[in-house]
Simulated assay, not measured.
Amino acid sequence: MADPNLSEYVKTSLAQGKPKEEIYKELLGQGWTIEVIQESFNSIGTEQEKEDTSKKTISIIVTIGAIFVGAGIFSFIAANWLEMTKPIKIGIILISMGVSYGAGWYLKEKSELQKTGDALILLGSIIYGAGIFLVAQMFNIRANWPDGFILWMIGMIAMAFAVESYPLFYLAIPLGIIALVGHPFGIFTGFGYNSFLLTSSFLLLVSTIITFVTGWIIRKRMSPELKEFY
């Protein structure tokens, strides 16, 4: 069993940014054996793995919770949709989105409830995406339906950069795939003759550029270890 005091010293040294080699030299100079030192490092690694697993579990739970809350909100709206006037509908969308983003940002930046904050920001992004389609339906906007997913993806990427939330980047990926697969081939064959198709083509081009730039920025921010992995 690892010595608790030694393990605490190793943990503190690692937190201060000391390399393992330096810690080994210090402890060997103090009379500790290599086996005991290695045992302390192993115990810290086990604790870290447990902590990471716990964080991942919490993240998954709050994310699923945010999705269910979002589904509940829109189930309520859908049930009363016909009775609502347009200003009320738009107001509900904007207020729900604003409250989710605001509360999420506050919890993420001003408190220690970072996972809950990320979940609320994710909920706000789901409301934002649903709002795009609801507004288009309300005002009978003629558009190519994958364009809505492109706008949703672009807005989500912008918010992900603004609040540094990786779950939003992850959700933007399937949105982009849906938009790409769903776009009819007519946007290429009819390019230049129809303003509707021209708009779709322009959005597709913009989303492609944004996706590549986003990937490049994320990769630039990665540590060398992650770059080798990916």
Rank of each mutant, 00 (worst) to 15 (best):
Q30G: 03
Y24L: 09
D3W: 05
I60K: 06
E225A: 06
G215A: 08
F74L: 07
L151W: 06
D147P: 01
I150D: 02
R219H: 15
N80A: 03
D118Y: 10
E22P: 00
A160G: 10
Y106N: 09
E26W: 00
Y193V: 03
F149R: 01
Y193R: 09
L82D: 02
G190L: 07
Y101Q: 11
I132Q: 06
I217L: 13
I61E: 00
A143F: 12
W216V: 09
P224Y: 04
S223L: 11
L122S: 04
L123I: 10
Q48D: 13
E225N: 11
I34E: 10
F68K: 00
M159T: 14
I67L: 11
K18V: 09
D118W: 02
Y9I: 12
L134Y: 01
G70F: 01
G72S: 04
Y166T: 13
K86H: 14
G192K: 11
I93W: 08
L197T: 03
D52Q: 12
I77A: 01
V206Q: 04
I217E: 10
I126G: 01
L168N: 01
I218S: 08
W145N: 12
Y24M: 06
M153P: 02
I67E: 02
P19R: 03
S195M: 11
L175W: 11
F74G: 02
I77Y: 10
S165M: 03
G17K: 04
I127T: 11
N194I: 06
Y193G: 04
E47P: 00
H183A: 13
E21C: 01
S223V: 12
Y193K: 14
I93V: 13
W152N: 00
I90Y: 11
G182E: 11
Q48Y: 15
S7L: 13
Y9T: 15
P4D: 13
T63S: 12
V135K: 00
V206L: 07
S54L: 07
A160E: 01
E164C: 03
